[in-house]
């Protein structure tokens, strides 16, 4: 008998947390998304799907959807290719590679907020180093954080810089686990090294790429809030306002609980879709190591 309930006891702590702090909020969001709630929560009227309707007819919200897609897309693509390239470099057995690896991995340890602060500094119009170098080398003289399209570039710099190491770490591990026979065989076949990289190595690590794309999407969509908040505050205008930033504004700046709840529900659904794609598609394909 004790043996029977034992596994359930083991699960209790985890489930308490998951139920109270993920599922309960999800239901709370769903419920409140059908109401319009006054600022101090004292008045509440049922509005049906009105919150969702006004979101999808709100130009600013649609813009945020669009910006999220573009920003996430560019960050993920750039980060994936750059990290694959850097991982290939690091995989070469050259002197000093350990030091290089340490330095290149370092940004993994810093937070998104720190990444935002660092790049905000490097790009600031008065004393920024990158701002200065850009002026010297490319003749770009601009206010990076407050003008279009540079504000978006700035964010992308910071988030690519921040997400690169994570991806490199995984690619490097994957590269190191490719059996040398495979590569030797292709050398004997006479494939040129560039061709070898794209025709043989890249496909071999594709399960990792799939995993990293998912993780990068999550990071660029959700964790990048800190970068945006520190660097551009969603501006200029709503130019760099993504879905999470918009949610933050509606939920905590303007106190529109109903509308913000609807946005939470949408984000939750998006995450569920990503998770389902991952498990149904990834389950079959991801077999590395």
């Amino acid at each position: 008998m004790r043996r029977k309930i034992f596994p359930y006891l083991l699960l209790i702590p985890t489930y308490l947390v998951i139920v109270f702090f993920i599922y309960a909020p999800a239901f709370d969001a769903l419920y409140n998304s059908f109401f319009r709630v006054s600022v101090f929560g004292r008045r509440k009227i049922f509005v049906g799907f009105q919150n969702y309707l006004s979101l999808f007819t709100d130009k600013d919200y649609l813009y945020a959807v669009n910006f999220t897609l573009v920003y996430t897309g560019v960050t993920v693509v750039v980060s994936i290719f750059l990290s694959f390239f850097l991982a290939l470099l690091l995989d070469q057995k050259v002197p000093g590679s350990r030091i290089y690896r340490t330095l290149i991995f370092a940004p993994y340890a810093v937070s998104h907020a720190v990444a935002g602060a660092l790049w905000g500094f490097l790009l600031n119009p008065v004393v920024g180093h990158v701002n200065y170098l850009m002026r010297i080398f490319f003749g770009i003289q601009t206010h990076w954080l407050t003008t279009t399209p540079y504000a978006a570039y700035s964010l992308i710099f910071a988030s690519v810089w921040k997400t690169l190491p994570f991806n490199i770490i995984f690619y490097l591990a994957a590269l190191q686990s490719i059996p040398t026979e495979v590569l030797e065989a292709s050398i004997i076949d006479g494939a040129s090294s560039w061709k070898r990289v794209w025709k043989i190595i890249f496909p071999l690590v594709s399960p990792i790429t799939f995993y990293l794309v998912i993780m990068s999407i999550i990071s660029a969509t959700f964790q990048s809030f800190a970068i945006i908040d520190v660097m551009t505050k969603g501006g200029p205008g709503i130019y760099t306002t993504n879905l999470v930033y918009k949610l933050f504004l509606d939920g905590f700046r303007f106190q529109k609980i109903g509308l913000a709840s609807a946005q939470n529900v949408i984000l939750f659904i998006v995450m569920m879709v990503i998770t389902i794609i991952y498990f149904s598609y990834g389950q079959r394909r991801v077999h590395y190591q």
Binding site: D60, T147, T148, P236, G237, I238, L249, R253, F254
Partner: peptide, 19 residues
Amino acid sequence: FPEVRNAIETAVEKMLTGA
């Protein structure tokens, strides 16, 4: 009022960027 300010600031920023 916060939303009104937000509306003004957003529009001004769009003007400043030339949009």
